[in-house]
């Protein structure tokens, strides 16, 4: 055979090999093909070995052709291997496919009661402002619940709160305000006094959609030199923006509490209508959320802070009302019914 025959034979070898490679279905067939066409006993190897029979000057030419064919076959093999590998992975993935819409494996999550969440949120705001948290007795004396708060016996303002008495002088506290006096008595003569006191309170009310015989209050008190009513307003504005949104505005409205003078109610812009007026705010655009005022001079003097030198502000709010506004709960009794279908909605981390 002359070199032209050799070359022709190489080309037909290449074409046959490529044809068979294209038909190969799996790695095993690929392996057989590699042995057949690129192995030690392959035709290509045979041809290289027989190159010696050619004249010396033709050997490199044929060698060049052999290498070219080998390289073409090698590349084709690599490509085929990759393609088969990819196809095989595809098949495996298809076989291993799961339903990602089926539910995950979860640990049941518990929940914090909405009132706790509101109380914690509010208390945390004041702790961050440097207030100390205080909790006091629910069974109070008439003295601390009323008398030291400028509500002597037989004062008509006692009608504002119907009281559960336990004895003539012991009662279930009707407000967290006794904590104002207890805190001042504990802290005197130090200033500033900055305290936030959450807790349960009780009133002799018939339970209905807006009344509960047991509910919660959060009392705040600041006493120092030069404490102003504007400080009260600024502090509560910060609080309102923190709880109800950064665009909240507040207003103070004159009111009456025996233990503050001047006294005020704090209104926020209606969270339902934004101030344009709706059923929830009785078309006023405002919602009353807490009572507050400057600590009454008689209360300050009685608790050991000279009212000519010191002044203070106090406020008391109802977390039930705030929870109801914030979460759209329309009946206060739902907060004490503890229906797990409601409580479990409070899974969220606040």
């Amino acid at each position: 055979m002359n070199i032209t025959d050799w070359i022709a034979s190489l080309q037909s070898l290449r074409d046959r090999a490529l044809g068979e490679l294209a038909d190969a279905q799996d790695m095993r067939q690929l392996d057989e093909w590699r042995v057949q066409y690129l192995g030690k006993k392959s035709d290509l190897t045979q041809i290289s070995r027989q190159m010696g029979q050619l004249p010396a000057e033709e050997r490199p030419v044929l060698g060049e052709h052999v290498n070219q064919v080998r390289s073409v076959l090698q590349d084709a093999l690599t490509k085929k291997q990759e393609a088969l590998h990819a196809a095989e992975l595809e098949r495996r993935f298809a076989a291993e496919t799961i339903d990602v819409t089926a539910p995950g494996r979860r640990k049941p999550r518990g929940s914090m009661h909405p009132l706790t969440q509101i109380i914690e949120e509010i208390v945390e705001i004041f702790v961050a402002m440097g207030y100390e948290v205080a909790e006091g007795p629910e069974v109070e004396t008439d003295e601390y619940n009323f008398e030291k708060l400028n509500l002597p016996k037989h004062h008509p303002a006692r009608d504002m709160q119907d009281t559960f008495y336990l004895t003539e002088s012991l009662l279930l506290r009707t407000q967290t305000s006794p904590m104002q006096v207890r805190t001042m008595e504990r802290m005197r003569p130090n200033v500033p006094v900055k305290v936030i006191a959450p807790g349960k309170v009780y009133r002799r009310d018939e339970d209905d959609a807006t009344h509960s015989h047991m509910f919660h209050q959060i009392e705040g008190l600041v006493v120092g030199e030069g404490i102003r009513m504007s400080d009260l307003k600024g502090t509560l504005e910060l609080f309102a923006r923190s709880v109800f949104g950064a665009d909240q505005t507040v207003r103070l409205r004159p009111s009456f509490f025996p233990f503050t003078e001047p006294s005020a109610e704090l209104d926020i812009r209606c969270t339902n209508c934004g101030g344009s007026g709706c059923r929830m705010c009785k078309d006023t655009g405002w919602l009353e959320i807490l009572g507050c005022g400057m600590v009454h001079p008689r209360v300050l003097d009685g608790a050991g802070y000279d009212s000519r030198r010191f002044s203070g502000f106090a406020f008391g709010m109802g977390p039930e009302r705030i929870a109801m506004l914030k979460y759209g709960i329309e009946d206060i009794r739902l907060l004490y019914q503890n229906d797990l279908r409601l409580l479990r909605q409070f899974h969220r981390v606040l």
Binding site: K194, V222, G224, S230, K233
Partner: peptide
Amino acid sequence: IPSTLPATS
């Protein structure tokens, strides 16, 4: 009444 914050320590 303006909004201020207590000027305590």
